[in-house]
Design a protein around this nucleic acid. Structure first.
Ligand SMILES: [Zn+2]
Ligand SMILES: [Zn+2]
Ligand SMILES: [Zn+2]
Ligand SMILES: [Zn+2]
Lengths: 134, 134
DNA sequence: CTTGACTCTATAGCATACTTTAGGGTTTAG
DNA sequence: CTAAACCCTAAAGTATGCTATAGAGTCAAG
């Protein structure tokens, strides 16, 4: 199948498909006599794997690693795969807790402000940001 | 004070200080006869403002806006400032909830895997990513 | 035969917040 | 006087995941 069909089948933009190829996420397809890319059906499932993996937070590089594991499943263990997702879960948890820290710091500043329509000359939000003490 | 001193006082890298200047976060300092930057003490508080604002999650562009508000406080209202932080809080909350969605999707996949040292040929994590159905 | 849809490559751009590099002056201590 | 430490500019590089642009060949329908 040509790139346009693959694109509409998977919902992935043509440019993006070529980009994935350049990043070695999908293997280089055969070419028709006119030079057009000619994909096999397997590519669809690879792309679905990529989409799913993106959805659960993996980066393209991580997905590349995952794909390498996936195509050589028999040479890898469940332990290894589970460890991979564990690392990612840890990362996500870390990001969440960082954001929560930021949120609570900003909330604290936010709450002190009256929010009224008077001049901001004594606005507690601005003061909080000005103050040099932590 | 010269840039090195400002850098060690504030803990902000010299290159970063010049970068902030290029982005108009801090105003262009006077120059000594040899062309070296000569900062006034006010710059320190501006930089502390920037550091604090970064800590609570504002981007440099947002900080630039905040600084404009701050130097013309009297022409702005508390309402305006509070609205500004509210928008940011909403953004942060959105990011957190997105991450939580990702987390729960990944967790679900993660939990099904036995994590054992057998071959990953039937690993449920890989299967979950392969499956075309949502 | 022409028009429009499709495909190709190579390169640049976007957003963010720096960091690095290259190449070159200035100052100060010994 | 010289070497280290400090300062300067301009431009390119980093990471991420595309997206856009330019210029050009190919194919199918009317
Ligand atoms: Zn107020
Ligand atoms: Zn206020
Ligand atoms: Zn298992
Ligand atoms: Zn498993």
């Amino acid at each position: 199948m040509k790139i346009g069909e693959l694109s509409s089948t998977t919902g992935i933009d043509i440019q993006t498909l070529r980009y994935y190829e350049s990043q070695n996420l999908i293997s280089k397809p055969k070419r028709l006599s006119n030079g057009y890319r000619d994909y096999s059906d397997d590519t669809i499932s690879t792309l679905q794997f990529i989409k799913k993996a993106k959805l659960v937070g993996f980066t393209l590089n991580e997905i590349k690693e995952l794909l390498e594991i996936q195509v050589t499943k028999d040479k890898h263990t469940c332990h290894e795969v589970k460890e991979f997702t564990q690392v990612k879960l840890d990362e996500i948890n870390h990001k969440i807790s960082e954001l929560k820290k930021i949120k609570s710091a900003l909330s604290k500043i936010h709450q002190t402000c009256c929010g009224g329509f008077e001049s901001a000359e004594n606005c507690s939000i601005l003061s909080a940001l000005e103050n040099s003490d932590d």
